[in-house]
Design a protein around this nucleic acid. Structure first.
Length: 105
DNA sequence: ACCATGACGCACA
DNA sequence: ATGTGCGCCATGG
């Protein structure tokens, strides 16, 4: 069922290792409507593909890791393993670590 | 069709 | 810069 959530999973899989993306970017890439990122969070939360989809690479737009079904701590640990430095739940050099699907210039 | 929920984001104080 | 409140979208019951 190619529902909204399904698209979200697909995009998450495209996130390169060591990088992160935001719910907003995903939503924007999908539809670009107002608060779609809300539904994005819901979709990932259901995330039936825990290991297949690197949902832990999806963080808040303000640079915070946000939440995680298994616990934000776990999420942080995973990101750190990927090479993303996190400080008190906040991503360091977040701006540089964010991966944009639009691949802006 | 309506109400409630949720891994968010932004405006405002 | 920090904390609180409100709003919107998709999904499920």
């Amino acid at each position: 069922m190619r529902s909204f959530a399904d698209k979200v999973y697909s995009l998450c899989r495209k996130i390169p290792k060591g990088k992160v993306t935001t719910y907003k970017e995903i939503g924007k890439k999908l539809g670009g409507r107002g608060q779609i990122y809300r539904a994005v969070g819901v979709a990932l939360n259901k995330n039936p593909y825990s290991p297949k989809v690197p949902c832990h690479r999806v963080v808040l737009s303000n640079g915070k890791v946000g939440g995680f079904a298994k616990g934000s701590k776990k999420k942080i640990a995973l990101l750190k393993k990927e090479g993303v430095n996190i400080k008190d739940g906040k991503i360091i050099d977040f701006k540089k670590r964010v991966f944009r699907f639009v691949t802006k210039k």
